[in-house]
Simulated assay, not measured.
Amino acid sequence: MLRHWPVPGHADLDRLHGLPAGTLAAAAFTPSRLHPAITGKITDEQWRSTVTADIAEACGSMDRARAVVTAWSDLMPRVDQEVVALLKRARKAVTVALVSNATTQLDSDLARQGLDVLADAVVNTAHIGVAKPDPRVYLIAAERVGAPVHRCLFIDDTAADVTAAREVGMTALHYREPEESPRRLLSAPRSPGSPERSIPNQLRGRATLGILANPHQHPVAVFARRSRRRAARRPGRFRRCGRSVA
């Protein structure tokens, strides 16, 4: 939700470097290649080195392969400014945690695009050893904001991750289109029988509101409300939980 892949030019890298379509994606994002990188078994540098080695034959030399991987690494995802504005507004009242299936480069990537100031906590799966949809990711995210999972709202663009969030007890929404407004997603009425029906009503009295997003390296967020006793005195206000950075 916060950052959108692929970016313009991503699909053109193979063609520009004389490679069969899909060569780079197959080398980088095959589960057996990507999973070790997003669970911290290998570093981002090691991951990109293995991708370079994998495409060297197709490129004709290691030098050409390195050039392809360098060009790919230099691409930056599009930042959704509406989500940025929403998170900035939310952070004035609540704790925000960004959660991402990401490599060890996530922190520097966020800083490079000025996104490292949007959250009180970052849960990078490369630092915790498990990736969505592993239920432990959601439990860790809730722990980082000091709230039980049943008081969290999860939003993701991958159906499997949304299902996993519901299975651990979170309320969850499936973000289906990059053009879909986060505000409209949160407020839109759900069809009868939908597990996402009446989301605003489900959130009443909850302690935490969260938005989590899917990568390739797309982050997430979790917000925490005041305790019920204090909230009763100041309706609609929120307390800020202690900060924790992954």
Rank of each mutant, 00 (worst) to 15 (best):
H10S: 06
D14P: 04
H17A: 07
P20D: 10
A27F: 00
F29Y: 15
F29C: 14
S32E: 13
S32A: 14
L34F: 14
L34G: 00
P36W: 12
I38S: 00
T39R: 04
T43Q: 03
D44R: 13
E45H: 10
T50I: 13
T52S: 15
D54R: 00
A58N: 04
A58M: 07
A58L: 11
R66G: 13
R66E: 15
V68C: 13
V68L: 12
V69T: 10
T70S: 09
D74R: 08
P77G: 12
R78K: 11
R78Q: 11
V79Q: 02
L86W: 03
L87C: 03
R91Y: 10
K92G: 06
K92L: 15
A93G: 07
L110W: 06
L110G: 15
L110D: 14
G114E: 01
L115N: 07
L115E: 12
L115G: 12
A119Q: 05
A119D: 03
N124A: 08
H127E: 14
P135C: 08
P135L: 07
V137H: 05
L139K: 12
L139C: 01
A141H: 11
G146R: 10
G146Y: 09
H150P: 04
R151K: 09
R151C: 14
C152I: 14
D157L: 02
A159D: 14
A160I: 15
D161F: 13
R166F: 02
M170T: 10
A172W: 11
L173A: 14
E179H: 12
S187E: 11
A188Y: 01
P189Q: 15
R190T: 05
S191M: 06
N201Q: 07
L203E: 13
R206H: 13
L209G: 14
L209H: 04
L212M: 04
L212Y: 15
A213Y: 02
P215I: 03
H216P: 08
Q217Y: 00
P219R: 01
V220H: 02
A221T: 05
S227T: 15
R229G: 01
P235A: 07
P235E: 02
G236K: 15
R239W: 01
R240E: 14
G242E: 08
V245R: 10
